[in-house]
Simulated assay, not measured.
Amino acid sequence: MTKRPLLRAAFEHELREALEAEARAELPRAWRHLERAHVLSQAFVGPHVRVHWRMLGYGWRRRDTREVWGQVARVLGAGPASWLGRAPVGNTGGADVGIFTPLPIPDDLRALLDAEG
């Protein structure tokens, strides 16, 4: 992601927005930003694992057992999935979505991913 400055900036922006929204108790908005960061990070080992750690922390703070266990599995698998190019495109990364389920990518993120190729 370091050679893709627009993608890196968008990823960091989504993580900041998630943190700020959670601090304001705007929980659905915070989660939506984490999901968007996940979509942007899937092809990159470090950022992909980082997003899953953030999602794990979010689940932990909410005392959401399902999300915590789902994220534990994803933290362990995110690095290899990215490294091997096996992360399912568009997957939002939450425990409410199958680990191998591809999903449509929002148009604004698709344009960014295509531009930064």
Rank of each mutant, 00 (worst) to 15 (best):
G57N: 04
N91D: 05
L76P: 00
R63C: 08
R74M: 11
W83F: 15
E35F: 06
R4F: 14
Q42K: 04
W60N: 07
A10N: 00
R66A: 13
G85S: 13
Y58V: 00
D64G: 04
L103H: 09
E116A: 08
R24K: 11
R66T: 07
A21N: 05
M1N: 05
E20A: 14
R61M: 09
R16K: 09
V75N: 04
R61C: 03
L76K: 02
W31A: 02
P88S: 06
D114H: 14
L40E: 01
Y58T: 00
Q42D: 04
L109R: 05
P80D: 10
R24G: 02
E67W: 03
F11N: 00
V49T: 12
L56V: 11
W31F: 13
L15P: 00
L84H: 12
L103G: 05
E67S: 06
L113N: 02
I105E: 01
G98K: 07
M1R: 07
A78L: 02
T65A: 14
R36Y: 07
T2P: 03
H52F: 10
A78D: 01
E17L: 14
V97Y: 08
A9T: 10
M1G: 06
D107N: 06
R50A: 10
L103K: 12
L27T: 08
E35Y: 06
L34Y: 12
L6I: 06
P5L: 08
V45R: 02
G59S: 14
P106G: 09
T101W: 07
V72H: 09
G85L: 13
E20R: 14
V75Q: 03
G117T: 09
R8V: 04
I99M: 11
L34D: 03
R50F: 07
Q42R: 07
H38Q: 14
P28V: 12
E22C: 04
G57I: 00
G85A: 13
R86K: 15
A18P: 02
R8C: 05
L7W: 03
A87C: 02
L7I: 04
W69G: 05
R36H: 12
V45I: 15
P106C: 12
T101N: 05
Q71M: 10
D96T: 09
Q71E: 12
D108G: 06
P28I: 13
A23R: 15
H38I: 05
V89E: 13
A37L: 11
Q71C: 09
G79S: 10
L19H: 08
R29W: 05
A9R: 13
R32A: 15
V97D: 05
D96E: 08
P28K: 13
A81Q: 13
V45M: 08
R29L: 15
L34T: 02
G57P: 00
R8A: 14
A9Q: 13
F100N: 11
E14K: 03
A25E: 12
Y58W: 14
M55F: 03
L7F: 05
V49H: 02
D107V: 09
H48N: 04
F11S: 00
F44N: 03
A18Y: 02
L15A: 02
V89N: 08
F44I: 03
A115M: 12
P47Q: 13
V68C: 13
L113A: 04
